[in-house]
Structures are given as C-alpha cells and as structure tokens.
Simulated scan of single mutants.
Amino acid sequence: MSSQLKVALVVASVREQRFGPVVAGWVREQLEAHGGFEVDVLDLVDVHVPVTLDGSGDTEALRARIGAADAFVVVTPEYNHGYPGYLKIVVDTVLEEWAGKALGFVSYGGSAGGSRSVEQLRQVFTELQVHTIRRQVVFSGVWDRFDDEGRLVEGARYEGAAKSMFDQLVWWAAALREARRTPVVA
C-alpha cells in the first residue's frame, strides 16, 4: 500500500461565474506543498448524475473516484445560508464509498465565509460515517481575498489554517485507511 494518501478535492459549485475554481486552485497548491497527497480534482461541473439517483450518467465513474480516495477536501460556497443543491445529489448518489474516510472543508462566501454550509454538511457526512476534520479554512469576503490572477492576497493566515487542517487530515486519513482493513461491525 502506498504511503501517499489519495485525496479527492471536490469543487462543489456548478453555477456559472462561480468562484470555486479559484479557491480550489489555491487549495490544490496547498495540498501539493504540504506533501503526502495524491490529489484528484473532482469538479462537480464535470460530473453528470441524475436527480432521480437511478444510477445512470457518471454514477459508476463517480463511485470509482470516491471509492479510491482515502480522504476528501470539499471546497464549498454558501448559497442562501446552505450548501449547493447539486452537491447533495452527488453525495446521495454515492453512499458506501464515502464511509470510513476523513474530510476537510474549505468554505467561501460573504460575511460568514460559507461556515453555515459547512455546519450543515457536517451533519450529512456524519450520517455517511465520514469523519469531518475540526479545523477548516474559511474565506469571508472571498472576492477581496484573491487578486485578478487568482493568487491569494495576504495568505499567511490562510496557509497556516490549511496546514493545520491538512495535518489533521493526514492523521485521520491514515488511521481510517488502516481501520478500513477490518470490516465494520453492524
């Protein structure tokens, strides 16, 4: 088994003119700088699953990618005090493949920085037996945090938060990868 952890970096927004790819680009750079991760960018704009959850579309490919991951980082905005609806459809499309893995959040938005969407998502992922990392990265007023080229302005605070979250993610993902070798007791 490789010592590198496979991390699916989930870009949750599918709206036109979304800011998620800018934030996700920064997160990917931070994951790569941290080391120890093999990153799979899973941009939901490129994933086509039906709202009926009937298994068609990209369902099998999505299951394979989620199943292959040891951990996840979800980059999510906050829309109307909640998380993106399409993210919920994707989460519900793939159930068993999420279980027994670790997940960190990077949220963005206005004054709350997406923190309300994360609090709701913690409940959803707990039900799927995913361990959500306590530390998170929150970009309030996100549009003022990045320059026109997508570079983070005054990034030391955010880099420190990301490192702390990734340190926890490594520990939990490695521990849970080992634990997944033993079948779960029902």
Rank of each mutant, 00 (worst) to 15 (best):
V74C: 04
V106I: 14
H81L: 11
V41G: 02
E32Q: 15
K6M: 03
V185P: 02
P84S: 07
R135C: 02
L128I: 03
S117W: 01
V10N: 01
V184E: 12
E60L: 11
Y86V: 01
E159S: 13
E16N: 06
W171I: 08
V23S: 04
Q120V: 00
Q168P: 03
V22Y: 07
D92H: 01
V94R: 08
S2D: 15
V41L: 12
G113P: 09
V118C: 05
T52M: 11
S140G: 10
V124C: 02
L128W: 08
R116C: 03
D92K: 01
V51N: 09
A175N: 10
Q120I: 00
Y83T: 02
E32R: 12
L103E: 08
R18Q: 06
I89K: 01
V142G: 02
D43W: 08
V90F: 01
Q129H: 15
K6R: 15
A102V: 11
G155Q: 09
M1V: 11
R65C: 04
V75W: 12
R134L: 12
W26A: 10
G82C: 07
D40T: 14
M165N: 05
T126G: 13
G55K: 06
E154Q: 12
G141F: 14
K6Q: 14
D70A: 10
S56E: 13
L9I: 09
L9C: 08
V14K: 04
E119T: 07
V39E: 11
R122K: 15
L103C: 13
T126E: 10
E60G: 02
V75A: 10
H81N: 07
E159F: 02
E16A: 12
S2C: 01
V91K: 01
T52G: 03
A8Q: 09
V75N: 06
L103S: 08
A8G: 05
Y79T: 00
S164G: 14
T126Q: 10
V124Q: 04
A24K: 03
R134P: 03
R134G: 14
R157C: 00
G110L: 08
L121F: 03
V94F: 04
A99R: 15
V118T: 02
V153F: 02
M165A: 08
G104P: 12
A179T: 02
A99W: 10
G100L: 12
E149W: 06
V7K: 00
F72A: 09
I133Q: 05
L169C: 12
V124D: 01
Y83P: 00
A8C: 13
V153I: 15
E38Q: 13
G82V: 00
D46S: 14
L176T: 07
G109S: 12
L5I: 14
G82I: 00
L128V: 09
S107Q: 07
R134F: 13
P84M: 04
E127I: 06
V184Y: 15
G155E: 12
Q4D: 15
F125L: 03
L31M: 15
Q123V: 06
V39S: 07
